[in-house]
Simulated assay, not measured.
Amino acid sequence: MEKATRPAVTLRAMSEADLEAAHALSRELNWPHRLEDWQFFLEFGQGVVAERDGAVVGTAMCWLFGEKAGTLGMVIVSPDAQGLGIGRKLMAAVMDILGNRTMMLHATEEGLSLYQSLGFVAVGEVFQHQGTAFSVPLPELLPDERVRPMGLRDMEIITDLDARATGMDRRRLIDTMDKSALGVMLTRDHEVAGFALFRKFGRGYVVGPTVAPDIGGAKALISHWLGANAGMFCRVDVTEASGLSPWLDELGLQRVGRVTRMIRGTPVPVDAEFHTFSLVTQALG
């Protein structure tokens, strides 16, 4: 009697032609990403797909932010193909693309043990908040502090502040977001002190990234977007260290999930005067 064999799994580079299959995989896991979100990720990132019998059964993506750091995410294996070591193979492939860069990711509970075995270390948590805020109190602004619309000349400032807060060169990400995102700037004494972007994502809209010098500035920026879009479904992913989670709960954006922030390699230096309070997405940081 012949012994049944498992179909071979092969890896190859992700192309735009794979995005519909990748989107179907994320929907299979009830992830909120639209096809447009996958297209956004691939526009300035790289991906790997796992194929079995001509069908895409797994994905992983990474983004190179300068010569020293990068992030990875969108690691998905179809439930029908789990237990075959595909996730580990996909991770090895994108880690090879990242090379010697410091690598950062946000891990679900299901992927935590895999990432730990690959040398990633937990450094904190991120809380996912989403929902509809119908009444957002006006923020208490400091004297000579205000929130104003983003202008054409602000993109260079946003890129600089983001780099100072994250320690990464995310110019390509910011430039790509500029095609679809709206922005507001926080100013103090007529000097820019922070910003927050707002764009369509998943089931509604996302506020992020938000960069500010302190929690008061972050609340002023996020309040602007939630207040201006009262009654609309919004998502905000905040770090545990930000201290914003209880406040978002009170506004009506309930905490619906948490992921573990992980890093492999030497942490990149950041400017202590600026902090990232909300993320672009969990995949991008």
Rank of each mutant, 00 (worst) to 15 (best):
A230V: 11
L19N: 07
T260N: 00
T166F: 03
I174M: 09
S26V: 08
W247N: 01
M232C: 14
G66L: 04
M61W: 10
L251D: 00
E250D: 11
V48Y: 10
L244G: 11
E273T: 12
G231E: 03
M262P: 03
G85H: 07
P209G: 06
T260W: 02
P267C: 13
D214W: 06
P139W: 03
V121R: 15
F201H: 09
D249I: 05
L141P: 06
D144R: 13
E16R: 11
N229G: 12
V136Y: 00
T71A: 12
L11W: 06
M95E: 15
E43Y: 02
F134Y: 05
Y115R: 06
G194E: 08
R172Y: 07
D249V: 08
G99M: 13
E2T: 11
W63F: 15
T71K: 05
V211P: 01
N229L: 05
A81T: 13
M177I: 12
K219R: 15
L248K: 01
I263K: 08
G70I: 10
M168K: 10
E125V: 15
R170D: 06
V207P: 00
Q130D: 14
D160H: 08
H33R: 11
P143R: 10
A193M: 07
V259P: 02
Q130E: 15
E156W: 11
D144K: 10
L112C: 08
F195V: 01
T266R: 12
G70Q: 12
I222Q: 00
W31H: 08
R27K: 14
L112K: 12
V268A: 06
A92P: 00
V207R: 03
V123T: 14
E250F: 02
V206H: 03
V192E: 10
T260Q: 08
G217Q: 04
E36C: 01
D80Q: 15
L90N: 04
E2P: 03
A193K: 07
A24Q: 07
M14K: 05
V280A: 09
S117L: 09
G58Q: 07
D169G: 07
R170C: 03
M262V: 09
R34E: 04
E110Y: 15
P143H: 12
F195E: 01
P79V: 12
P143N: 12
M61E: 15
A122G: 14
T59F: 10
H275F: 06
V136D: 00
E109C: 08
E51G: 03
F195I: 03
L64T: 11
I174K: 01
T239P: 00
A55K: 10
P246V: 08
R88T: 07
R171A: 13
F198A: 01
E125D: 15
A241C: 04
T260K: 07
